[in-house]
Simulated assay, not measured.
Amino acid sequence: MRKLLLIPLLLLIVTSCKEGTKEDITLPGSSGNTNKILAVVKANDWEGKIGDEIRTVFGEHQVGLPQPETLLSVSQIDPSGYKGFIKNSKAILILKKGKDEDISIERNKYADPQIIVHASAKDEEGLINLINSRGKEIIKIFQEEDIKFIQNIFRKQRLDESKFKTIQNLGLSVVIPERYKLVDDTGDFLWLRQHLKSGIARGDGSNNILVYSVPLEEGMDVADNISAMRDAIGEKYIPGSKEGMYMITEAAYTPHTYEVKFNGKQAYETRGKWEVKNDFMAGPFLNYTIVDKENNRLVVFEGFTYAPSVNKRNFIFELEAIAKTLKIK
């Protein structure tokens, strides 16, 4: 009788241990590069109308780059092959048939960090409609997750911003990885540079960060003045190899400017191309101009890339991740 009473107690202890260890499981690290997703979809759907819609929506080109590059790179695997280490992919889109036309999100299910977006609809037509109507939303979900991923890495490699006069004088905080080296720090203008170590640009290519502010004039149309402000800063601080050469906004390419919210403040995001006046150097830039009405100024964070003959999407994306850590104290 005593042994029989012990059995339920032992079962309870074993069950409790299992439940406790399940929460304490250490997930393996995820695999996959930034801005790349794995689509889990049947091969015949991938080759058909569903795949065509995915390639159309996810294959939209990123504005401001000198060569055509898609917002996201998508690879496909059949559901039958979605097993084992494949499930450890960092960004996964699963398309499946279901009752409701909707999307749902899972995080860190098989690996860490990981995001899985489930897109379901009752039939082929519904899936096509879902991708068409909510594709940009899905893209944003993946991109924001990649931004967080990059920022978490950079926080572990952060430069000591107290060493930079401009950051201190402007009353800012920003997470910049330590591989960026100082070019200029006047107290009003900061320029940091990272030499790139990949592709044909090895040794020559660089990612650059600029931080500065300009006065906010009454009645000023900020969006219409961003290129002129950039050109003035370029002439003053970013010279070319000879006299009369300096960085300007490329005259032949109109930048794309969007009004955005930046940590709760009105701001403008501008993507375009820069060039060196009277020279052949050029590349893409990303500019955030933040309206700081409390201090009657515009705070500017700009990233620009020089990487001839290689793709630049991920370089600019890294600069975007850094920019979005900026805060006005």
Rank of each mutant, 00 (worst) to 15 (best):
I233F: 05
V211S: 05
L210K: 01
E217I: 04
A251E: 13
E217V: 12
L190A: 02
G219K: 08
P239Q: 12
I238C: 03
N207C: 09
D221Q: 00
I200P: 00
M245W: 02
W191M: 01
S227N: 08
N207H: 09
G219H: 06
G219Y: 07
G187R: 00
I226D: 05
A251D: 12
Y237R: 09
S206E: 03
L190W: 05
I226S: 02
N207G: 13
K242R: 11
A251Y: 15
I200W: 03
I200C: 01
T249D: 12
V211F: 04
Y212I: 09
E217Q: 13
H195W: 09
H195I: 11
A252C: 05
L192H: 01
D224L: 11
G240T: 07
G187M: 13
P215T: 10
M220R: 14
E250I: 06
V214K: 15
L196Y: 13
M245I: 01
W191Q: 09
R230I: 03
S198L: 08
L216I: 10
F189E: 02
K236W: 13
S227M: 08
A251K: 15
A251R: 14
G234V: 08
A252E: 15
V222I: 15
A251L: 14
A223H: 00
I200S: 05
K197P: 00
R193L: 10
I238F: 00
V214C: 07
L196M: 08
V222A: 09
E235R: 14
Y237P: 00
V211W: 03
I209Y: 04
R193N: 11
K197A: 06
P239C: 05
Y212W: 10
T249I: 08
D224S: 10
G199S: 07
S213P: 04
L196V: 09
R202I: 15
E218Q: 14
